[in-house]
């Protein structure tokens, strides 16, 4: 392929990407999610997962949790650009490795198969706070809460026990201890 002739600047050296969890407190109003998500897509930032829901109905505040990857410079830009949005109140940023922060995702697994297989599946799920939500003589639906990579692994490994459907949320995060993020 011939080199493109029409780009003013050459891309700089590729830097190492870190995974960060960005938490955004926003006014719960029409279009606010589109503003946040549009900022990411418009500026070429990455979204690995997204979770959003209203957390204070009186003050009308929603909390958006976004898992993203980027160079330190990009992560800084994400925070600063988010803070410029009018409905954004505050922005928190945690590294995935941060021990002071709890990250959780939830997943629903549907298994179809005989008793034996389903028993094995339930066993495998046990260490991730498994809850059986539905049960018939052919199938069951199990809820687990775990880290992203654990759910990734589970949904791969459980195929053999009749896993036919997976539904999962984005990560939510909260700091450990008595402090909250100001």
């Amino acid at each position: 392929m011939t080199k493109s002739k029409s780009a003013y600047s050459v891309a700089g050296k590729k830097e190492k990407l870190d995974t960060h969890i960005i938490v955004v407190w926003v006014d719960n109003e029409a279009g606010v999610l589109a503003r946040v998500v549009g900022l990411f897509s418009g500026r070429g930032y990455n979204i690995e997962s997204l979770a959003v829901a209203e957390i204070d109905s009186k003050l009308n505040i929603s909390r958006i949790t976004i898992v993203t990857t980027g160079t330190p410079q990009v992560i800084d830009q994400i925070k600063l650009q988010l803070k410029k949005l009018v409905p954004v109140h505050k922005v928190a940023d945690f590294k995935r490795e941060d021990k002071q922060v709890i990250f959780k995702e939830m997943a629903l697994f549907k298994f179809v198969g005989n008793n034996n297989k389903r028993g094995k599946a339930l066993n495998a799920c046990k260490k991730y706070n498994a809850v059986i939500l539905d049960k018939t003589n052919k199938s069951c639906v199990i809820q687990i809460t775990a880290l992203r990579r654990e759910i990734d692994k589970m949904s791969k490994n459980l195929k053999k026990f009749g896993l036919i459907s997976v539904s999962r949320t984005g990560a939510v995060a909260m700091t450990r201890g008595a402090e909250t993020f100001k």
Binding site: S9, V10, G12, K13, Q73, D76, Q77, L80, Q81, K83, K84
Partner: peptide
Amino acid sequence: GKIDEFSPKSKKVHIDIDPSSIN
């Protein structure tokens, strides 16, 4: 121009009202 070779020997100060312009 080329960012890698932009003013290589200078200390840079940036005065701006928009924090997202910095860096």
